[in-house]
Each structure stands twice: as structure tokens, then as C-alpha cells.
Design a binder for these strands. Sequence first.
DNA 1: GTTAGCACTCTTTTTATCTGAGTGCTAATT
DNA 2: AATTAGCACTCAGATAAAAAGAGTGCTAAC
Lengths: 348, 348
Amino acid sequence: MSGVIELLDDRKRRILAAIVDSYIVTGEPVGSKAIASLPDIRVSPATIRNDMAMLEQLGYLEQPHTSAGRIPTFAGYRLYIDELMNAKTLSDEDKKLLDECLDVEVPTADALIESASKALAELTHCATVVKNVAPKFSVITKVEVIPTGRRMYVLLMVTSSGNIKNKVCRLEFDLTNEQMEFFTKYMAENLQGVSIDQLDESVIERLVAAMGTYMVTLAPLLQGVCELAEGFRDNEIKVAGEKNLLARQDLNTTQLMRFFENKNEVVKNMLDDSFGDLQVLFGEDGGFVIENSSMIVSKIKKGGKTAGSLGVIGPMRLDYAKIIPYIEYLTDRITNLISEDDDEDDIF
Amino acid sequence: MSGVIELLDDRKRRILAAIVDSYIVTGEPVGSKAIASLPDIRVSPATIRNDMAMLEQLGYLEQPHTSAGRIPTFAGYRLYIDELMNAKTLSDEDKKLLDECLDVEVPTADALIESASKALAELTHCATVVKNVAPKFSVITKVEVIPTGRRMYVLLMVTSSGNIKNKVCRLEFDLTNEQMEFFTKYMAENLQGVSIDQLDESVIERLVAAMGTYMVTLAPLLQGVCELAEGFRDNEIKVAGEKNLLARQDLNTTQLMRFFENKNEVVKNMLDDSFGDLQVLFGEDGGFVIENSSMIVSKIKKGGKTAGSLGVIGPMRLDYAKIIPYIEYLTDRITNLISEDDDEDDIF
DNA sequence: GTTAGCACTCTTTTTATCTGAGTGCTAATT
DNA sequence: AATTAGCACTCAGATAAAAAGAGTGCTAAC
């Protein structure tokens, strides 16, 4: 091994790391002089220039123009993230801060993910995106109907993941007590334990058909039940802190808008694709086109399966060394918290 | 009267109107030549220049710099809106379009206002703001508690305005059937008919005290009830279409952000202040500082009292002649729709 | 292998000049 | 008395030229 010429020796790696570090902070191309002045680099600018030329040849750096410093390429960032940066370990204060974000009243997967998302957007001054697939795993535990006015009824649906949604239905006629009791019982018998994912029009149609003609007045309620389930499913992708990005001038506003408007289609695929627990995607990767942007995503698990993901979207020059540990910590905690629930409360 | 020199004769008014019209469309200062070329102005540029100088002296116009055309001042806009512009009358298609926006499933004040707000944001490419004070008028019609898991209960609150909110409570102990029945009955006896506006901590404390020691386990539920009422109250101000404004470069992004972040405090006062049914506020008026911005607000009524307001926020150079009729129509329709309900369904 | 020195490149900043839209005033016209 | 043509004047914005500066690559010396 010692005979092999190392294309990327230790010094070059340190220089590359220093360049990315600097670029992340300033956003300006980095010159040889700036690097030479760093305390732990003990060579002259000329030497650094040679190394930089080499790093450029290897595809880790590029020059915006001849007389400018260097900026990292995609490959440069990747290497930095995978091998070069020294991820900050979280201080106890950091952990305490993050724990507080997860201290929600009722720690369902939903509430935890949502709260983490908002906190992270705040902390990083970036946008965050969450995907919550808890609905897919969760089943209906309860459907209630409650009269609230003349011909007005509230449908209430509770799922095993602890989520609740309600919906007002306006009917053509008032229901008799008998009808209401029938409905509640019918729902308990036919929908309890049914996966949110499976409950679609076809199920409803079958139920309506099976219900018999006498109870046909109840059909609109069943329709409402279906819409409630849909509501749970549609809720999958959520973005927080969009405004943090719109203010930045290194990201294209139009592209951002387009992204946010189509978040459901766009992000869904990105988070679906199989990848490790934590992954960083760049700009045009994975079909979402926000030039100069980067996305750090991490998975949240539950019983071995992916229960959701939490991600930060920002400029390419994110403070990876800080943010990655943040995300890792949050997703780990959430993963633990929702697993604990499993034993304690049998929510799923 | 005929002897009095008219400072603002008909021609000057027409010229002012033409200048504002043009500026609203182009955003560029308007010169004498452009006005002279209009079909219904039959005087030379020189004459128009004289009139423009006069209009400037009167405070209706200003020049960004010597060699530029004129732009309207606040007073210019005000006169334009109050007297000069010819508001477009809505075509049948327009009305149909707007009616469709109000065709919501369950026409509560809330739903109507929300739907109108979103539609208006879309139609005008501006932000819209709504204030919904329905909660103030509405009273509690129902409080239910529904068990949904070990020590987990859903509180459901329904108000007379047809709004529903739910909240999960996690208790220290499971409730007995007896306790649940007691709670429901206690709520029905003590909170039914109580105004959302009045239900605060002090009421809850009184109820807890009156409940007796045996039922003290229920205190957290009462706390939850209080929070639900708070939730109704907090929901007062909503903004839609923020992004439409962030894209514009004639509005200061920072000021916009600040505005949106503090919308609750800022907008509340603006809409509270007594004013006519429809009002236009400019830039720095009323304490909200988005330079170069304008806000058209219109009231929604219910039984003579203000039930809410609907407003459009955009650049000063809004298409008032089009948007004002839109808002007027929408608020009128909503006012009618929620009054009809009064007779038909006795929701309030 | 490293470094000082230096010519070279290319962006950015500064300075100067030009152009044109639009005005205000005066004097002629209706 | 009101309107208009004519003209000098102003000033923002565009275009061009010049200067400054940051950073490089290469060569030759260490």
C-alpha cells in the first residue's frame, strides 16, 4: 500500500475540508491565501494552490471564473459530508433543547414529528419537511356520530396511532335514536381494526349495499367516514418554515414556489426511495429541482418499519456538521418514544 | 356657485383618474404624452402638464424626480377610490365564479369566510386576511368525552356557530363509566349556553371547586375544555396567499415577514377600529408598516353586529375598481348566507 | 516537495459620457 | 382667458472606458 501514490493525501483532504467549511460560512469562493492563514495548515499559499488544482482535477472543486477562489462541487460536498467534516457532538444543552421540542402533551407519532419539524425549522432557519406514514400502519379504533343541531352531525374518527379527526355532516333528515345506535354499532362491527390505508370508496360501497334499504339514509355518513380516512392519508407530507427559504437570495424563488406547491408529489417519491437511515440529497437529485439546494432526510422507525421521515431543506451550503447531528438526535428520540408507547400503551 | 373658481375641474379629475389607472397597470410614472394620447382626452400634452402641475400642488400627485412622470400620492389614491374610479360592475360570470367559492359543504360562518379568503387570494394574486369573531357570539352547545385508549380521552366541543374542535387528554387514571357520565352531565348543566368568550380559567376553577373532591380526577378534563375554548378564540385572524406578496419586488420582504408573524396583534386592531362597511387603508395607516402596501377590508355582519371581516392586502397599486366589487359581493353574500341560517336552522 | 516571485486573467468598482423621457416656462395662437 | 407649440433644462439610467484587486498558474530557486 505504501508504494501507491495517494491522489488524495491527508493534507489535500484537510484543505478540501477547510474550503468547504469556509464556503459554508461565507458563501464566497475560497482562495489559497485564506486557507494558508488557518492555524492547522502549515504550508504556503503556493503549495495550497497546487493541491487545489489537483482537487479540481479530481472533481471536488471548481472555479466560478479564472481569478476567483474555489467552491465545492457536488462531489466535494459529498466527500465532505461522508468523510471530512467533523460532526459536532451535541452538548447537554443542545440535547435538552431538542428534548423540550419533543415534550408534547400527547406523544403520538404525529404530534412528535410535527413538533420536531417546527422546532428544526426554527433552529436551522431552513424549511423542514416531514412525511408521516403512521396512517398506513394505523387502524380505525372508533367511529362516533354526535348530533349537534338540526340535521347536523359530527363524525368523529379515532385511529390506533392516536389521531383524531372530525367532520360535520349535514343530512337531509334528522336521525332517530335507533338509526344512530345502529350506525355506531355497524361502524364498530365493520370498521374497527380496518386499516386507514384500505378504507376507500369500494369498502364504503360494500357497506352501504350490505346495510339494507331501511338504513339508506345513513349513506351520507358513510361517505363522510370515507372522507375522514382520506383526510388522514392526505396528511402525509407537511412542510414548515417555507418562509425561511424565500428570503434567501441563493435559492430561486420560482423554483421554491413550485416545489412547495407540488410538495405532495415531489417529496413523496424522494422519501419513498430506499436509502439508509440518513441521507443527503443535492439540488437536482431525485427529481426535485431547486438549484443550489440540499436536503437532509432521516428516517423514523417503528418496529423495524419506516414510520416517517424528517428532513431539512436549505441551500447547498448548509451547516451539515451541526444540522446532521440535530436531525439524527431528533429522529432517534422519536423512534424511541413511539416504540416505548408500543409496550406501554399498545397504541398500534 | 358658478362664479367660484373650481380648483379641481372635470378635466383635472379625468386626468388624475387616467394617471392612477395607468400607474396601477404599469407601475411606472405617467407622463403628459401618454395621457394626451388617450381617446377621451382631447387636449395637448402642454395643457395636461399645466393640470398635472396643479394636481401636484393640490397634493394628489408627486414626481419621483424632476424628469419623470407623476405618480399618485396617498391623497391621490384616496380621491381615486372615493370618487374617480369607475368600479366595474360584476358580470354574471363573475358572480357565478364567486358564488361557487361560497358553495361549501357546511355553510358555517367559519367555512364561508375561510373559503372566500382563499378564493380571493387566488383571484387577486394578493394576500387576504380574515377576522372571524363568530366565536365571540357563539356559545357551547355540547361537550363530549370519548375514551380512545388506556387513559386516553378525546374531548369534543361543539359551538352554536357550527364549529367543532377536539383535543386528546391523557389522564393519570382510567375513568369509570360513572365518572364519564357525571362529566358529560356536569358539562351539559354548567357549560351549555356559555359563551366561548367567557369561558376562561376562572370559570374552570369555579367548576372544579364546585365539583367536589370525589370527582377531582376530572380536573384535567376541565382544563382541556378550557384549552379548547381558547383554541376557538385564538383562531380569529387568518391570512391566506402570503406567498403571492413575497414574490413581488415592490413590497419589502422583511416588512412582510414581520407583518405575517405578528398578524394576530397587528391585524386585530386594524379590523377592530370602527369604520364603515368597506374601507381602504394605506401603507403606514393604522400601525402596520408595509411600505407601499394597501389593504381593502370589508365587514361581514350578522344580526346588525360585525361577525368578521374579509380583506385583501397587496401593493398600493391594486386594481381597486375590480377588487372592491369582488370583496363587496363576497361579504354581502356571506352576510346574507349566515343570516338565512338564522331563520332556517337557528344555529346561533 | 515546497515556496517566492511574477505575469496574467477576469470580476468588480469607479469614473466619465451619452441618451432620452419628461418637465416648466415663454411666447404665439385660438 | 385658455390652449398650444417650441425650446432649454434636468436628471435617472444606459453605455463605455479605465482602474483596482483578488486570485491564479507557472517558473525557478530553495
